[in-house]
Design a binder for these strands. Structure first.
Length: 945
RNA sequence: GCCCGGAUGGCGAAAUCGGCAGACGCAGCGGACUUAAAAUCCGCAGGCCGCAAGGCCGUGGGGGUUCAAGUCCCCCUCCGGGCACCA
């Protein structure tokens, strides 16, 4: 038997000392007495791992193992990792290593979100080309990651600023253009007059330019490319219900962002004669509005109609038929104008005003209409009324100011009567048309009906301007007569069961909800409205007037208008020799070699689009590329994606809850509709880790509370740094960085090192195999029990809640227990087999948490194969079982004593044992026992009086 | 204003199903080893009263359910985050 044999091979007689020490004759023995030196261990293993790039590579799809794709959000290559990165990656790495050990085929990649403005700023500051700066930063950060020992497969590395990657951004863009999902239109952007350039939203701080703190950022209308995210609003919303393993918080944020609102659009006819010219002059924007109002998606003016054979009708809606002719004609004429010179004339009018309302049931209480200052009809009114024009300009200015101050919610309500009236389609009542600064042009139809009695905002406005406040909803229980309007009106917005309509013609006596349905149906029947749904989610403007991004593959030709770059001409390379200056506008526009090209259609001279894409485009699909990072026939190998997707676990900061995570859900659906992939969602499980804070604030340079990972590694080692990041708090909560805590973890690792290396010589004598409870020696039983209890605890934590802090605490307890049991373990009371079993399993438990130390000790225990592919320790319930347990005994719910009883004792035994306890006996002396509550395995409570 | 989180010793935290509140670690105190220090090891440690045995109080505050509440229910306070004249 191996156990006997190895026992005989013991090199040192156990009787030589009460605790076993390896003899100095052995070379390992000197190492064994040595201290834990991460500065020596870690670089040694880094070198060994670096020389074996296949070590962390996923196995072939045919491996037969079940796949597990674990991913951390890719970083922007700023040049240095911060502690937030370390925490994020330590979580992912622990999981990846655990999953390998659980026998999965693991994909665990890393890449770089490498386009973006900081590179241009660095270029300005240091006169370094953005590419050079970025690639240098990547190299530095990659080496930091390697020093931290993360198990990334660097063979699948993705860098978004390289043409091999961004050409597929361009390809996707062309595909979306073909499908009507990419379009160009004029839109408002942030503009800094001093920089003479467009700013990203992130560069606008409290309404001012980030470089010129006193400079208020203006809104300018600029032609931009948009992706039609709004086509997927409903699907993106519905999809959230299926994401059961996403945090509720993130789903709620996305729901808010998508902002679905159910209601109705209702047309108010403009009073006859108001604007002669308006009649029958359906223009671009008004047809847009009409389409919106009719619940259809709006197609842009200048793009081909959507393909009729849409896979499932989800992606693109048909063009609005009413305006198709007009649209096409305009598209024709406009396409011939140079892009810079293009301007979309504002709409000139409509014979009716559509309003979107969630409260059609209150329409009889609408005592005015309020239009947004930008509403086309307002423009028309203004044209013939100079005084009104001034007032409207001032309203617009107020709105702009408020928006710039980021404070649109607190704007003081102002409005002006236009002098015109519309007709309420239900009551035929004349309703004054106002312009108001609180009505937003980019939501709903840009016009609202004002019902002061049942809406707080409308009430405030009506009070101020003396408009009629007409109650049309009563609390049913208080209503006496319909005609008299006797009864109590509900608190402002009320639609509950107890509601009752009055003053509402044929709809009187209905409840609000019922009325909403009936009135929408009525409007539809009579052709002046329809039930409709509005979303807050808007199309995604991706044009950036910047250099360091993906060039948008479009060409402007004087003859042929906007012409997409033919696919076979991709990639459109970003020119690299370019002077970065502070001059405004797109830097690429000043590179003639880039701009000047020939039209793919007519061969004549033409100009390239000089804007680049938002970098969120890059990160919307990068994780698909990891599955086949070197593939060059498409963005990815669809078979590889089919195997690996969806991502099993995605880990990152909650700050990406909306932008990146909505965009990538959108992109996934577009790719699905393109038949590239079959999954609807990219990510099955999402985990958002907490921030790393120090001295009460998020680590940041400006707060001066940053701790550098390099410094921590130099002082305590990568293992201790990582493990502290997992130990100091559960991963979903904010983590308070305390350097003393890192020192504590480091001390713990040193203790493990001493313990294992002290007995490694002895352990090597025995094989490593499972033990049964029958064969273990009495001296080792306690340690083995603790070991298996720990295995159970750690395995549970990894599989479920990810509370690595308690896993680590459990392993610390185990090590403390082993130290206490050292006399027994070190003597021949315990066998080599048992020592090996305990130490080797301890090392396996540590493998995902402290990979360097684990690898080192794994080798000291005589193993030569890779720790990463070892099976996770097997839990033996028999070995873990305690035969005696302590149970609290309460008196009237208060702890009075603790009894030791056999595990699994029945109620009667427990009750008797509790009552026999001397402390309890004394305490209940002379009292009457009302009852004894026994919960086996939990507690005994004696109720007395 | 609306929607999410959170509040437990000097500090980070634990208590997964309602059953010994404070595991584990940090900082602290005492001791062993040492000429000394470092390192290491052992012990103490929620608050108040008490020489002690022991008692009382204690998970942001107030109420409730229960044999039993950090945990469940109702109300409130404070802190963090998201959204916001969204019609």
């Amino acid at each position: 038997m191996p156990s006997e044999e190895t026992a005989n091979q013991r090199t040192v007689p156990a009787s030589s000392s009460s605790t076993f020490t390896a003899e100095t004759a052995e070379p390992e023995a000197r190492a064994a007495e040595d201290r834990y030196r991460p500065a020596e261990i870690e670089p040694r293993w880094q070198e060994r791992w670096a020389s074996r790039p296949e070590l962390y590579a996923a196995e072939p799809r045919s491996s037969g193992k079940s796949k597990y794709y674990v991913l951390e959000m890719l970083p922007y290559p700023s040049g240095k990792l911060h502690m937030g990165h370390v925490r994020n990656y330590a979580i992912g790495d622990a999981l990846a290593r655990f999953m390998w050990m659980q026998g999965h085929n693991v994909l665990h990649p890393m890449g770089w979100d490498a386009f973006g403005l900081p590179a241009e700023n660095a270029a300005l500051k240091n006169n370094t080309p953005p590419r050079e700066w970025t690639l240098g930063n990547i190299a530095a950060m990659r080496s930091q990651m390697q020093r931290l020992g993360f198990s990334y497969d660097w063979q699948t590395e993705v860098t978004t600023c390289l043409p091999e990657y961004y050409r597929w951004n361009q390809w996707f863009f062309l595909k979306m253009y073909e499908r009507g999902l990419a379009y160009r239109k004029k839109s408002k952007v942030n503009w800094c007059p001093q920089c003479a350039t467009v700013l990203a939203n992130e560069q606008v701080v409290d309404g001012c330019c980030w470089r010129h703190e006193e400079q208020i950022v203006e809104q300018r209308d600029i032609e931009q490319w948009f992706l039609r995210t709004s086509n997927y609003s409903q699907e993106l919303l519905d999809g959230l219900d299926g994401l059961t393993a996403w945090p509720d918080k993130v789903k709620t944020m996305q729901r808010n962002w998508i902002g679905r609102s159910e209601g109705a659009t209702v047309d108010f006819l403009l009073e006859t004669g108001a604007i002669e010219a308006a009649k029958d002059d359906e223009d671009l924007d008004s047809s847009d509005k009409k389409a919106r109002r009719e619940g259809r998606a709006v197609l842009p003016a200048r793009e081909p109609p959507a393909a009729p054979d849409e896979p499932d009708g989800r992606a693109a809606a048909p063009a609005a038929p009413i305006s198709a002719n007009v649209t096409d004609a305009k598209a024709e004429s406009k396409a011939k104008v140079a892009p810079e010179a293009q301007s979309v004339p504002e709409a000139v009018g409509d014979a009716k005003i559509s309003v979107f309302t969630t409260r059609i049931d209150t329409i009889y209480g609408a005592t005015s209409l309020q239009l947004a200052p930008e509403h086309p009809l307002v423009q028309q009114f203004v044209a013939e009324d100079a005084a009104l024009s001034k007032e409207v300009a001032s309203l617009l200015e107020q709105q702009k100011k408020a928006r710039e101050a980021g404070d649109i919610g607190a704007i003081e309500k102002h409005g002006v009567f236009t002098g015109h009236y519309a007709l309420n389609p239900f009551s035929q009542e004349r309703v004054p048309i106002w312009v108001a600064n609180y009505v937003l042009w980019n939501y709903g139809t840009g016009a609202v009906m004002s019902v002061p009695a049942h809406d707080a905002r409308d009430y405030e406005f009506a009070q101020k301007y003396g408009l009629e406040i007409r109650i049309v909803v009563l609390l049913r229980r208080t209503a006496e007569t319909i005609e008299g309007g006797g009864g109590e009106a509900p608190m402002l917005p009320y639609t509950g069961e107890d509601s009752l309509l009055i003053n509402s013609g044929q709809f009187n006596t209905l409840g609000c909800v019922e009325a909403q349905h009936k009135m929408a149906a009525f409007a539809e029947e009579h052709g002046f409205g329809t039930a409709s749904v509005t979303y807050r989610l808007r199309d995604w403007g991706i044009s950036r007037q910047r250099y360091w991004g993906t060039p948008i593959p479009m060409i402007y030709c004087d003859r042929d208008g906007i012409v997409p770059v033919p696919e076979d001409q991709l990639p459109i390379l970003l020119p690299e020799q370019i002077a970065i200056t502070q001059q405004g506008g797109s830097p690429l526009a000043r590179v003639p070699e880039f701009v000047e090209t020939t039209c793919p259609r007519c061969g004549g001279p033409a100009r390239r689009e000089t804007d680049t894409m938002d970098t969120f485009v890059d990160s919307s699909w990068y994780f698909y590329r990891y599955t086949s990072a070197k593939y060059d026939k498409g963005p990815f190998d669809t078979d590889a994606v089919a195997y690996w997707f969806p991502i099993d676990q995605y880990i990152g900061g909650v700050e990406h809850a909306i932008l990146h995570l909505i965009y990538s859900r959108f992109w996934t659906r577009v790719m699905r509709d393109m038949k590239l992939i079959t999954n609807d969602e990219p990510v099955t499980r999402l985990f958002t880790q907490g921030m790393v804070i120090r001295n009460g604030a998020k680590m940041s340079k400006s707060k001066g509370n940053v701790v550098s990972p390099d410094e921590m590694i130099a002082r305590y080692g990568a293992d201790a740094t990582r493990m502290y990041a997992l130990f100091a708090a559960p991963p979903d909560r904010d983590l308070d960085w305390q350097e003393d805590g890192v020192a504590g973890v480091s001390r713990f690792l040193a203790k493990v090192y001493r313990l294992v290396s002290k007995y490694s010589v002895r352990a090597k004598n025995a094989e490593f195999r499972p033990l049964t409870v029958r064969e273990v020696s009495p001296a080792a039983l306690k340690s083995l029990r603790k070991l298996h209890q720990t295995i159970s605890k750690v395995t549970q934590d990894f599989g479920g809640r990810w509370h690595f802090n308690t896993s680590i605490a459990a392993i610390m307890e185990l090590v403390n227990a082993l130290m206490a049991a050292e006399p027994a373990l070190g003597s021949d009371q315990a066998t080599d087999l048992e020592v090996r079993h305990i130490l080797q399993n301890l090392v396996l438990l540590l493998a995902p948490l402290a990979p360097y130390l684990a690898a080192e000790l794994w080798e000291q225990l005589g193993n030569t194969d890779d720790l990463l592919r070892q099976p996770w320790p097997a839990f033996d319930a028999e070995l873990a079982r305690e035969d005696e347990v302590e149970l609290p005994v309460q008196l009237n719910g208060k702890l009075k004593s603790v009894i030791r009883v056999a595990a699994g004792a029945d109620e009667k035994t427990l009750s008797e044992a509790a009552l026999a306890d001397p402390k309890i006996k004394a305490a209940i002396e002379g009292k009457q026992i009302v009852k004894v509550v026994v919960v086996p395995g939990r507690a005994v409570n004696i109720v007395v009086k």
